[in-house]
Structure formats: structure tokens, C-alpha cells
Simulated assay, not measured.
Amino acid sequence: MDTPGTKITPVILSGGAGTRLWPMSRTMRPKQLLSLTDDRSMLQLTAARTSDAAHFSPPLVVANAAHADEIERQLVNIGAPADALILEPTGRNTAPAIALAALAVPPETILLVMPSDHVIADVAAFHRAVTTALPLVEQGWMATFGIAPDAPETGYGYIREGAEIAPGAHKVDRFVEKPDLATAQSYLADGRYVWNGGIFMFRAGAYLAALRRFAPDIASATGAAMAAADRDGARIHPDKIAFTASPADSIDYAVMEKADQVAVVPVEMGWSDVGSWDALHAITGPDDAGNCHQGEVIALDTNNCLIRSDGPLVAAVGVSDLIVVATGDAVLVLPRGASQDVRRIVDELKRLRHSTLDQVR
């Protein structure tokens, strides 16, 4: 990676609950803190992508206060402690969360904003995309990274590429909501649409200026929250009353869809948001029978299944196309292809106020 004279500050967003991967992902131990695709957790993998001290400063992590101890432990264990751990008193979506990080550094700081729970298989390609975006960011552009689509995916938002403004970078023509299947197929055929992967890069001051222009209530509330923040070593606790007054909105809606100088860098880097058990099955190398399994599992005459256990032995005989996930206190069984229905289970558990949403046993 070539970023002469410039250091980039990673911002890792770790506030999500990851309930689509219940029962392994819980409120108190969400998916970014789990080891799902590697011996390291997803948070650790994210931090490791920007651990080269020649090009990156130590990360800023924006997180739920309940996870602070575990986040610190995991980052120290891989030799990548956070420069600051900004602990949200409540969730307000990505636009306010990123504002907290932007307010914690000098305005000229270049921020690389990354979700903590995504998979990037080709890290070198990711670094090349960051290098492509850097000169534009230094000129005041805000950049996002568009994932080259390989299927008509209906679960992602899309970005339509406009005119090329630099080698490998385009002006964003528009952001597009999650499409239906026919529309997604037309996007794939068109060739100018990429998935919105939720990774961004800009100067802190450029983001805050755009926020003041397009979402002044968020800018005001987050500014007040950081001005009155408590600090305990690397931990920053924004003022709860001020932060709670902020509207909840994503960076896409609040800023990126409205700003003028927004660039997209298309990249093929083996990306997945691991947003479901089906997605995990797709990126995990199956055996000869198409099965992916982890933990104590016996599978006989079983095909194309994802079977994982953090607790009891799971034995499967003569079944196909199932997702089976077992923990110490819950078992999930559903057909492959239907893992988005985990949301229905989570909604029912919320209605019942069931302990398996929160605690891990």
C-alpha cells in the first residue's frame, strides 16, 4: 500500500447487535465479537486490516458501553489497541456514531470508516482501493467503496457510478434502495451499479461540515455530547442527555446521498457483511457433501447443511439444506435460504422478553 506522507485513522463501528445470527450472536456478545470465519473475531479481523503502522494510525472504536471490556481485551490480544474507545450511551445509527469519532480528532484527519462485522477476503485489493481514494479525499471529496456485484442481490443497497473522476474512481450518480429481484437483475446487466458496502473515507472536517449542512440537529447534538464527555484513559463517554437528543439516521441518508463531492471506488475484494446464516454458509468452505460445520458435529448422509455448535453434540442423519445452530441454551433449525426469518424469531423473543436475546450461557 502506497500512502506517502499520509496516515489514515481507522474508525471501527462496533455498535451493532447482530441479531440475524441468533442464537450465537446476542445483545451482550454480538457477532463482531465472535469467531465466525477465522480463529480471530470479526472485530479483530477488521482491526488487523489496518494494523500497518506505516500507513495507519491506531483505530478509533465507536461501541456500546456494555462491550468495552471485551473490545479492549480483543484488540490488545492482537497488538492493536484502540487510540480511543468512544462509548455510545445509546444507539443512534451510523451518522451520529461517525460524528463522535470525527469530533475526537483534528479536522484534517483522514478517517477510514469500517463496520466491525464484515468479511474482506482480499485485503490487498482493499488497500489498493484505499490508495485510489486517498488523493480525492485529500482534495475534499468524501469516498465510499462499491462492492462489485456477482449476483442480483436484493438484500443490499446499490450505488450507480457516474463519470470517472480519477483512475479507478467515479462520481456517485445516485444511491439506490434495496431493489426487488427484477430490478437487481437489471442493475447487474447494466454494469454501472455496485453494492453499497458501508465503508467510507473522508477528512473529519469534511464530514462534519456536510453534517452541519444536511443534518444540523445531529451535528449540534453530537457536538454537545463530545464537549461534555467524560474521559477515562482511552475511553470517552459522550454526554448521555446531549447524545440522546440526536436524531437517529444512517450516514447514507443524512450525508452521502445529499452531498455533492461524493466518489465511489469499485472494488472486488471478497466482501460479505455476513448478514445471515446463509451468507456464512456461502463464504465458508464446504466439505465434499456441501456441509459446513463447526464444533462437535456428526453428519451422516447429510448434504448442503450449515451445522454449528458451541455446546452439545449435534448429530444429523439423512437431511439436506438445513441450518442448525446450537448453543448452551438455544437451538435454531430452519431451511437454507430462509435464514432472514431469524428476524421473526428475534421479534418473538423480544415480545416474550426471553433471556436468550441478551445473555450467553
Rank of each mutant, 00 (worst) to 15 (best):
G18A: 05
W22D: 07
P23H: 08
K31C: 06
D38T: 12
R40V: 06
M42Q: 13
T50M: 12
S51E: 08
A54Q: 12
S57P: 03
V61S: 03
V62K: 04
A66S: 08
H67F: 13
E70V: 10
R73Y: 13
T94K: 09
A99Y: 11
A102P: 05
A104P: 04
T109N: 11
T109L: 13
T109S: 09
V113T: 05
M114L: 15
P115Q: 13
I120Q: 02
V123H: 04
H127M: 04
G140S: 04
T144W: 01
G146N: 01
D150Y: 02
A151S: 11
P152K: 05
G155Q: 03
P167R: 06
K171P: 03
K178E: 10
L208W: 05
R213T: 11
D239G: 13
S250P: 01
I251V: 06
I251S: 07
D252M: 09
E257P: 04
A263W: 01
P266T: 08
S276L: 07
D288A: 12
C292M: 02
Q294F: 15
G295V: 12
G295T: 05
G295D: 02
E296R: 14
V297D: 10
R308T: 13
D310Q: 13
P312V: 05
P312Q: 08
V324N: 00
R336I: 15
A338E: 04
L349S: 04
L349Q: 12
R353H: 05
